Computed example of a mutant assay.
Amino acid sequence: MTEQTRIHPHADSRDQAVKWIVRLHAGSVSEADSKELETWLAKDPLHRLEFEQASKMWAILDGTKALLHEEIDEAEHVWNRFSARQEPVVPRPRWSPAWLSAACAMAVLLVSTLWWAFMLPQSTEYRTAKGEQRQVTLADGSSVTLNTDTTMRVELSNTKRRIQLERGEAWFSVFHDEQRPFTVEVANGVVQDIGTEFIINRTAEYVDVSVMEGIVEVGLSDTSNRRPTGQPAVLRHGERVSYGRDGHMSPIGRFNQLTAGAWKDGQLIFQATPLQEVLREVSRYRTEDIRLLDQSLANIPVSGVFNIQDLSNFMQTLQDALPVRTTWVNSSLVIVERVAASTASR
């Protein structure tokens, strides 16, 4: 087979984006053209990404505008002198359709040549404070919902989509693109999407990956170079794994999707969950420190549905259902302690 020149899978979208930028800056866009542009942008999230990148590239090249005009003038002058030897020169407007087409071709060539020099992966950081949740729509069409106290860094390019979850929890709904893998780096692991929705929760001790829909691969890696250190686990709908900094990954198991994703709807659902774990989870959404004074209470099971934003109701429910008393020591500390059976029954 004869070797042919390789064309980047997104080259056509990129060229179209550059041509639209040239037309817009040439002032030759009609109302019908504007509607056509809107339709083109809405057709594919990649179109909007390429258009935004082309706009940035144009802004970079805009500083050379005067030089480009001088070169065009010189080229016209040389052409006119050459043409005068052959036949009379017919005057034509500076931005005639022919010149506009030539400018488009020139711009496409110039931008394609310089694209990789300027268009390094775009890096954007997203954060949420304690108690805050935020939904982000990425330029590729994927969406991410950040849970409380979460930090995420996003890098998008024409060849890859790289996410770094530095802390916290996030729900990923990924737009499928075979040409650009969607990977999430979390501590000493890498999660790669194969067309799905999944939740990643990063704590100080472990990373938990839960698949709400579709399939993902979860693999451990060397944090210095991100090279795989073993065979990845393939998770499907309703499956979960956890891994720690010690390089150990748990067996694949099932999980309750209702409870795992309830936070996205502003709720916390517990089903016979130990009190210590319940308090730890509620504390993630509060600026107050919730402290259990009596460790003998740690494993008392708690069940119920609670509003994330209503701490007062949560504390009152604990007092009504368990032999405990909750006390606000000050604006930043709440303590939970045992009360005598006779006191609790009063």
Rank of each mutant, 00 (worst) to 15 (best):
V207F: 08
V209N: 03
M212G: 14
E213F: 11
E213V: 06
I215K: 11
V216K: 00
E217Q: 13
E217F: 00
V218S: 04
L220H: 02
L220V: 05
S221D: 03
S221W: 01
S221E: 05
D222P: 05
T223M: 09
T223R: 10
T223P: 08
S224Q: 12
S224V: 12
S224M: 10
N225E: 01
R226E: 06
P228I: 00
T229Y: 02
T229A: 09
G230K: 00
Q231M: 15
Q231L: 10
Q231H: 05
Q231R: 15
V234H: 03
V234N: 06
V234F: 05
R236N: 14
R236V: 10
R236S: 10
R236G: 13
H237Q: 12
H237T: 12
H237A: 14
E239T: 08
R240V: 14
S242A: 11
G244V: 06
G244T: 04
G244M: 05
R245I: 14
D246F: 07
H248C: 01
M249Y: 04
M249Q: 10
M249D: 03
S250N: 05
P251Q: 09
P251F: 11
G253D: 12
G253V: 13
R254E: 14
R254Y: 10
R254G: 10
F255E: 04
F255H: 09
N256A: 15
L258A: 15
L258M: 06
T259S: 13
T259E: 15
T259K: 04
T259A: 15
A260Q: 12
A260R: 10
G261I: 01
G261E: 01
G261L: 11
W263M: 09
W263G: 00
W263L: 02
W263T: 03
K264M: 05
D265C: 07
G266L: 08
G266W: 03
Q267A: 04
Q267R: 13
L268V: 01
I269H: 02
I269Q: 06
F270P: 09
Q271D: 15
T273A: 02
P274E: 06
P274C: 06
L275S: 03
Q276P: 00
Q276N: 15
E277M: 11
V278Y: 04
R280H: 13
R280F: 10
R280P: 02
E281M: 10
E281K: 11
V282C: 00
V282F: 10
V282A: 09
V282Y: 02
V282S: 01
R284S: 07
Y285P: 00
Y285Q: 05
Y285G: 01
Y285M: 03
R286M: 09
R286Y: 05
T287M: 11
T287L: 14
E288R: 07
E288K: 13
D289P: 00
I290D: 00
I290A: 07
R291K: 09
R291N: 04
L293T: 07
L293C: 15
S296P: 02
S296Q: 12
S296A: 14
S296T: 15
L297N: 12
N299H: 05
P301Q: 04
P301D: 07
P301N: 04
P301K: 07
V302N: 01
V302W: 02
V302P: 03
V302D: 00
S303E: 05
S303L: 12
G304L: 09
F306G: 07
F306P: 00
N307E: 12
N307D: 10
I308W: 00
